[in-house]
Amino acid sequence: MHHLRKLSGCYYDQCHAVVGPFSWVSRDPSLRATVSPCPHCGEIFMKPQSLDTHQALTHAVSELGPEDTSRNIVEIIFHSSWLKKHAQPPVCRIDKVLKIHNTSKTTAKFEDYRETIKTKANKLPKMYPRCIADGNELLRIIRDGFAPDSLGRITTTASSGRADETVRRMSSYGELRAMLVCRVIAGRVKKSCEHDCQEECDSVVSSRSSVGACSNLDELLLVFNPSAILPCFVVIYSG
């Protein structure tokens, strides 16, 4: 009988840990520094890797409503580069804005890359003052995902209008399309790249000509390292 009581007490503690995770964490101070609670749903994980997997599968994105300040800012950024933004009907219509919840591992890689750029720039502080300050961070648009080209470069644009030009040629009017709004560590930028210059620069400005309505507004920035890009929002639109 005494043996059964010991077993029941053991199972009680385990069940209590599942039902009320925060209570057993608070009773054992040694666990507070090791557990990883999900900031979105409160579920407790014993390993940071498990939390990252959970967030990637369950909380990868969330839709922003019309009343959300972040959505309003993204919409302003998205529409600002369209030359025909006052046209009737509008050139494009935003259907949804999704906020991307990056894992701690992804964010850490992004910040580590920033520190790498700042370290490189410190060797020539007068030439790269912006890199020393924040790694030369920019807000960019990605239309084709993170697949690199034949030279290992990822294409980003400064405006949604420029990014849409290529997509529009491959889709029908009214069809839903999507773009990523990202933070990008541009680092040391070169104006052209006729040969491999990754040792001398971190990204390259390409002035490839375009005949679209927004082609005169900006140039393409080609980034070498995927860790330089932190996706923040997905804009789903039609037009």
Rank of each mutant, 00 (worst) to 15 (best):
S209W: 10
E111I: 10
R114Q: 10
R32C: 12
G9N: 06
M46E: 15
A33Y: 12
E137H: 12
T156W: 02
Y12E: 12
I229C: 00
H40K: 00
L180R: 05
F146Y: 00
R188W: 02
N102A: 07
L217H: 11
A133F: 15
A147H: 00
N216K: 14
F146L: 02
A33R: 12
S62T: 09
A17H: 00
K190T: 11
T116C: 12
S192F: 15
K85V: 12
K118Y: 11
Y128S: 06
I229N: 02
H59Q: 00
E194H: 13
H195V: 14
K109E: 15
R188M: 09
L151F: 10
E75L: 00
R168Y: 00
I117Y: 04
E63C: 07
H54S: 02
Y173P: 15
S80D: 10
F224P: 04
T103F: 02
F110C: 06
A186Y: 01
S207H: 08
E63D: 07
S209K: 13
I100S: 05
L139M: 09
S8R: 14
C232Q: 07
H79A: 08
L4G: 04
A87H: 13
F110M: 02
R169P: 06
L222H: 10
F233H: 04
H59T: 03
M170C: 12
S238P: 04
G152N: 01
I94C: 01
T34W: 14
C38Y: 03
C131F: 12
S206N: 04
K47D: 11
V211D: 15
G239V: 10
S70M: 13
L7V: 09
C197W: 08
V74S: 02
E115C: 06
S160K: 04
R130D: 15
K191N: 15
S23Y: 08
P39K: 02
A17F: 01
G152K: 05
G135I: 08
L138P: 12
N122A: 14
M170V: 14
P125M: 04
L220C: 12
K126R: 11
I117P: 09
S8P: 11
S30K: 13
L222E: 11
H40R: 03
A158Q: 15
K109W: 13
E63M: 08
R71S: 06
A228V: 05
D202T: 01
L4V: 07
V204F: 01
T116I: 13
P125D: 05
N72K: 14
D95C: 06
